[in-house]
Amino acid sequence: MYLYSIILIMLCDICHKNDATISYTVVVGEKKTKLHLCEECAAKKGFIKAFSLMNIQEFIPLDPNEPEVKNLICPKCGLTYKELREQAEFGCSKCYKTFERKIIPLFQKIHGSTQHIGKLVCISAERDKKEMKIFKFKKRLDKAIKSESYEEAAIIRDEIKKWETKN
């Protein structure tokens, strides 16, 4: 009986399937991260990068044949696409626009979505509200159709039309 503390049998940080049997302490700059890997994944990977970075790099594709990727650089903060992959952090709000096309799959992977439906900022709230309302209605419409609530679906469709024609 463990009364006070336990040893967690952890799943592999990479495949999330096998039990982790090997652990590594990875040092990146000042950051120390512990990695827990199964033997299979440990064999496949080198351990130079911390787990979170490694993961995110896999999500942001780097295709060297695409010439535009090489030259992608944020006009505001100067972050390059290569740096974004390495540090897995944006340098400013403009980065989101700069790398937009490349990072959308990343958000899909992390959050399962690419559209904000939460709180709005005061400024420009009206315009944003329209896009978001429509998005939310569409989500509800999908649900209604899936659950075969056709009457509800019809009502939602009308709502969407109303919002779409609004200026």
Binding site: S52, I56, A88, E89, F90, G91, C92, S93, Y96, I103, L106, F107, I110, H111, S113, T114, Q115, H116, G118, K119, L120, V121, I123, S124, R127, D128, E131, M132
Partner: peptide
């Protein structure tokens, strides 16, 4: 305060794991 915000991705944060809300 002029928050960094986009109507598509919400509140823009340094780390992509916080983006949105």
């Amino acid at each position: 305060l002029p928050y960094a915000f986009s109507s598509k991705l919400g509140y823009l944060t340094a780390c992509p794991t916080n983006t949105g809300t």
